[in-house]
Write a protein that binds this DNA or RNA. Sequence first.
DNA 1: AAGCGCAATGATTGCGCTATCATCAGCATA
DNA 2: TATGCTGATGATAGCGCAATCATTGCGCTT
Lengths: 344, 344
Amino acid sequence: MKTTKKRSSDKKITLVDVADASGVSAITVSRVINQPEKVSESLRIQVQKAIDSLGYIPNQHASSLASSKSRVIGVAIPSLSNIVFTEVLRGIYEVMGAAGYKVLLVDTHYSPLEEEKMVRTLLSQSPEGLIITGGDQTKACQNFLQKARIPIVQIMELLADPIDMNVGFAHGRAGFDVVKHLLGQGYERIGFIGARMDPRVQQRMQGYKLALEQAGKFEKNYIVTTPEPSSIGVGGELFKSLMASTNGVVDAVFCVNDDLALGALFEAQRMNIRVPQDMAICGFNDIEAAEYVNPSLTSVSVGRYEMGVQASEMIIRVLNEKPIESKKVDMGYEIKKRASTSRL
Amino acid sequence: MKTTKKRSSDKKITLVDVADASGVSAITVSRVINQPEKVSESLRIQVQKAIDSLGYIPNQHASSLASSKSRVIGVAIPSLSNIVFTEVLRGIYEVMGAAGYKVLLVDTHYSPLEEEKMVRTLLSQSPEGLIITGGDQTKACQNFLQKARIPIVQIMELLADPIDMNVGFAHGRAGFDVVKHLLGQGYERIGFIGARMDPRVQQRMQGYKLALEQAGKFEKNYIVTTPEPSSIGVGGELFKSLMASTNGVVDAVFCVNDDLALGALFEAQRMNIRVPQDMAICGFNDIEAAEYVNPSLTSVSVGRYEMGVQASEMIIRVLNEKPIESKKVDMGYEIKKRASTSRL
DNA sequence: AAGCGCAATGATTGCGCTATCATCAGCATA
DNA sequence: TATGCTGATGATAGCGCAATCATTGCGCTT
């Protein structure tokens, strides 16, 4: 081993260094790393020893450039602080990690313009696949995505015209079903509380509206929304607003997610409104607290983790040129009927 | 989805394509993208037009390889599903995004071995900086990190001997202070509920133990823990165990995080144990629900978002060769005293 | 003994970009 | 006029790796 450089730890160690140290050619070292079965065992061990002792770490950029394979999957979600997305992410990381893919994650802050910028960022890493949220991309963004010629899954909602693949569930129908459930429990004046009002929330609201209209019980002023992000605090505030603006006639509230619903529930308790006797409260997403809070909270359960898994597996199948059953997967949902809406 | 399209759109568009299309040299196009102030306005516009019309997206791998600047920051956290880390992440994304860095995020599942593998993955992307959690790295991992010669921040806890920089707070002291608070409120037999038992949780437990020993009130069997991940459900179970194994003599519980505390609180309600009269419950992390639940939950508030911001800013300062005030930052904490521990 | 097939290894080339240095006009200075 | 200086642009040479094709050696067949 030559030590022309005294500070061997100063320079970055490359394939060639390992090759020199183990007396083979660079390409053989490359094979030891990427296709070990193509190298004889003795050489493999010899090279591996050199790799370990030098602490060699391959340069992924060089590898990607040479092979045009990045082993990167890009993921764009609207918000990092929303548990809904972090659970989807868990599913994605689980599957992608196991399959040897890195995940490059960006946060679009619910803005299509931001999303466009972020998608550019993702594409500049030459990802082999992309998972993005919803169908609200800008025209320019759609163009980029088309051109990329990589598998893309749009998640969270079902889209009429997906860019490539699509995994989600029907938010509108879920909202519709929630209202049917509340009506079935004998609640008559059903309010709606919404925050952030992204496309999926809007769909839930449309479902709510449709169901009430069909029942002849829709009242515009039973709807209270805010563009602010959801939180328990906001849920409490909106509940108070709803009560105030309707003089307390509302006897049920459909909250567009569980944070709002918990906020409404806790506020109702403070206002001495009995849930579910005098007031039904229904959430959405079925976070863990819904099951354990007192009274337990009715909510719409969605396979978030599974959605991440499903999207990832579809991409991997396509990358491995295996057939996929369908480009569009409806994950469904289930209304978990609990104490907070049970008057019967 | 390989449709038979015409050749032209088949090929990836490179710098040279843009150069040809706009009649300049490749390097000028590169300048328009990276140092636009070095190109005359007329040329700049001309080139930009070609970029837009071709839909050119730079290949970051080639760029990184040529410049040895990746604009990537690696981040390793133990769990994606823990709100504690996602809020830190938010801070990191906020600052790093604004500064033009991409974040490559990996999940170590609380395992140093996994972490070592993940750090290798991160390093193979030649990140310009690294944010990792805690100080529990394997020897090999520490070696890699030393060799990397990039700014590294270890976050969440304060370390005696950090690899490079360190941002966190004193978990042990926080645990100690919680117990002091409970004692001060007149609670005498203080239990402990812990899950997952990672190093930071252990430190909190040590603080708990120390405070009780000093007060002559430590009882080994007041401690109930599980290696399982924390959840509200587990919190309820552990609370039941604690009550059972101590015949209900315990009059306060320090839960190592708010999920466990909420679980304990909800379970106490179901068991008709009055909080705070007969039982104090204290959590940790001060998630939003703590403030709004009834009774409101005493918890230890920590600037998680701020910790992410701080760590990111330190890295950016170092990368810009600006001085940092200190390599070690104590973010502190605050015990939010609320109804669940207020007997006075 | 010649030829064949195959596994193991190596030499060369180029992925797309930027660092570096070179070039050249335009202009001010002496 | 000669000299230097500045700002704008270009030519060239790799960055570290893997695709591609070439080479070698060895066992086996005929």
